[in-house]
Structures are given as structure tokens and as C-alpha cells.
């Protein structure tokens, strides 16, 4: 009876280590081998090497010595430029993320309306995302030029004398944020647009019957049902904002007076300009830990505000 039951439970399965099965698995592994080897060689191994390097004084040119926790200790105890790079990064994050997501939401709402040429607008807003960051930054550097730049020219038309955007320590970071919002708003707009189009019409109908105004429908239907998309964007924007580099490199070079020297830019300077690969590796691991922690906190907090339909 028991044998019969067992036979019913596992009908006609092949032996676990049959020759044929092993061969099939092997073939599968061989097919994915190039990717696996690539990932191991170019991601996993460098990550391990970077971890080891963070405990050395490696400079890329000579044999490194083991320095234990010195790099980590120095970062937190006596590197004023590290502290400044953290503050600059936080300034960027706080400026960039709300503006980007807010603007993306506004654009997504506009592009979700039935109107002529809406496809053109969607494409236009997304184009910067697929444009080269160097080209974008260079063009914006001309826009920001204190004399003859289009921004200050526009401000002068309304009687405002514009600042020297990229060379003024007060205005350089806002300028970077403006460019990065313009550059990056297309992607979250598309995500939010998809989120908007996924909201069943029936909820709006019900709200209308209940007498909800336009604002009320947005506040109590649209926004709550977009929270999963907003949550996803918050996570990804946090991670990418902490790693901003290209725009800063081209637009300001971390200046003036380190006013835009964000975390990754300072890391890059240490690694490739000052030949402090060990120190830069330690910075990379600190950043990894910080991002992991922030993401974890965000993940935990989502229960309080994200509504899954």
C-alpha cells in the first residue's frame, strides 16, 4: 500500500543523476558559461580584490602593503574632504530625488491625458535619457556661461542678474541638480506613466459616484495606487544619486572649491588622480554599506506608505 502511494506521488520521474540528465545540465551550463565566466571575472573577482585592496596602501604602480583598518579609520576621523563629499552628496540627493520624481509625476499625468501629439511629448521627455551624458553636460555648460549663456540671458530679460553658475560655490550644485533633473526625468516619467495606466478605471468611477473632486481622485485614488512605482523609483533614484559622477566630471570637475565634489567624484580623484587605490576601495565599501543600509531602511518603511492593490 505504501509502495503504491509512493509510486502515485512521484510518477515516472527519471533517476536524479541519470547520464542523460547530467548531460543536459552540462549542456545548459556550457551555454551560460560565457556569461557566468564574465560575471565572475569582471564583477565577482574585482569585488573581492577591491575588498582586499581596501586594507592596503595600493597605488596601482608598486607592491601594496597591508595597512589594516587605517583607510577606514582615516576616512571617518581626519579626512575633511571625505566629510564634505558626503555632505555634497546628501545635498545632491535631497535636491535631485524629490525634484525628479515630482516633475516626472507631473509630466506623467500630463502625458496620460488624451490629447493630440501626446506620443511626441512622451518621446521628447525621454530623449535626454538616451543622450550621451558628456554631450548633455557640455551643452549645459554653455547654457550656464555667465556671459552669453542662455540661462543668464533669459534671467536678464526679467531684470535678474544671473550668477556665475558653475564657478560660484553657492550655485554650482543647484546647477548640477538642474541638469541632472532635466537629464533623468524621462525614465521615472515612463515608469509612473505605466503605473498610471495600470490603475483600473473602476476606482475613478467609484470615486466620481462618491462625489470626489479632481484633486480628491488624485489624492485618494491615483497617488495611493502609484506608491509601488514611487517606491521603486525612490530606491533606484537613491542608489543612482549616491553614485552620480558623469555630469559632475564634465560640468564642474568637482569644483569650485569642491562645492560639487560628491562621493564618487572624490573616490575617483583618490583612485586615479592621487593613486590611492586602497583608500578609494575603502570608500567604495563604505558607500556600499551605506546604500545597503538605506535601502534596507526604505524597504522596512515601505509597509507604512506603499499600497499594493
Amino acid at each position: 500500500m505504501a509502495v503504491k502511494a509512493k509510486a502515485l506521488a512521484r510518477p515516472a520521474t527519471r533517476p536524479r543523476f541519470s547520464r542523460r540528465r547530467v548531460r543536459q545540465n552540462l549542456e545548459g551550463w556550457l551555454f551560460i558559461a560565457p556569461v557566468v565566466v564574465g560575471v565572475l571575472s569582471f564583477y565577482f573577482v574585482p569585488i573581492l580584490i577591491s575588498f582586499y585592496t581596501s586594507f592596503t596602501n595600493a597605488d596601482g604602480l608598486t607592491k601594496p602593503d597591508w595597512v589594516g583598518l587605517f583607510n577606514y579609520q582615516r576616512l571617518f576621523t581626519r579626512d575633511q574632504f571625505f566629510r564634505r563629499s558626503v555632505l555634497n552628496t546628501l545635498f545632491y540627493v535631497v535636491g535631485h530625488i524629490p525634484l525628479t520624481i515630482g516633475l516626472a509625476l507631473a509630466l506623467a499625468l500630463l502625458c496620460n491625458r488624451p490629447m493630440r501629439g501626446v506620443t511626441w511629448f512622451r518621446t521628447a521627455y525621454f530623449i535626454p535619457v538616451v543622450t550621451n551624458v558628456v554631450a548633455v553636460s557640455l551643452v549645459w555648460s554653455f547654457f550656464f556661461s555667465p556671459r552669453g549663456g542662455i540661462i543668464n540671458w533669459g534671467l536678464s530679460l526679467v531684470g535678474i542678474g544671473g550668477p556665475a553658475w558653475l564657478t560660484d560655490t553657492t550655485w554650482a550644485m543647484p546647477a548640477v541638480i538642474i541638469v541632472s533633473v532635466w537629464f533623468g526625468v524621462g525614465y521615472p516619467m515612463i515608469i509612473l506613466l505605466a503605473g498610471l495606466q495600470g490603475i483600473p478605471e473602476i476606482y475613478y468611477d467609484a470615486a466620481k459616484i462618491d462625489g470626489a473632486s479632481t484633486w480628491g481622485r488624485f489624492r485618494y485614488v491615483t497617488l495611493p495606487l502609484l506608491t509601488p512605482a514611487i517606491f521603486f523609483l525612490t530606491i533606484t533614484q537613491f542608489i543612482s544619486s549616491f553614485q552620480v559622477f558623469g555630469i559632475i566630471y564634465v560640468l564642474t570637475g568637482g569644483g569650485p572649491a569642491r562645492a560639487t565634489s560628491v562621493y564618487i567624484y572624490y573616490l575617483y580623484q583618490n583612485a586615479f588622480q592621487n593613486s590611492r587605490l586602497g583608500y578609494a576601495s575603502a570608500m567604495a565599501w563604505v558607500l556600499f554599506a551605506a546604500i545597503a543600509l538605506i535601502t534596507l531602511v526604505q524597504w522596512k518603511l515601505q509597509k507604512r506608505w506603499v499600497i499594493y492593490d
Partner: peptide, 11 residues
């Protein structure tokens, strides 16, 4: 000239 006119990254 002020600094911004003579020192811009990449220019």
C-alpha cells in the same frame, strides 16, 4: 576677469 571666465572644466 572673474574666475568663471577663464576656468571652466573641459573648456
Amino acid at each position: 576677469p572673474e574666475r568663471g571666465l577663464v576656468d571652466q572644466p573641459g573648456v
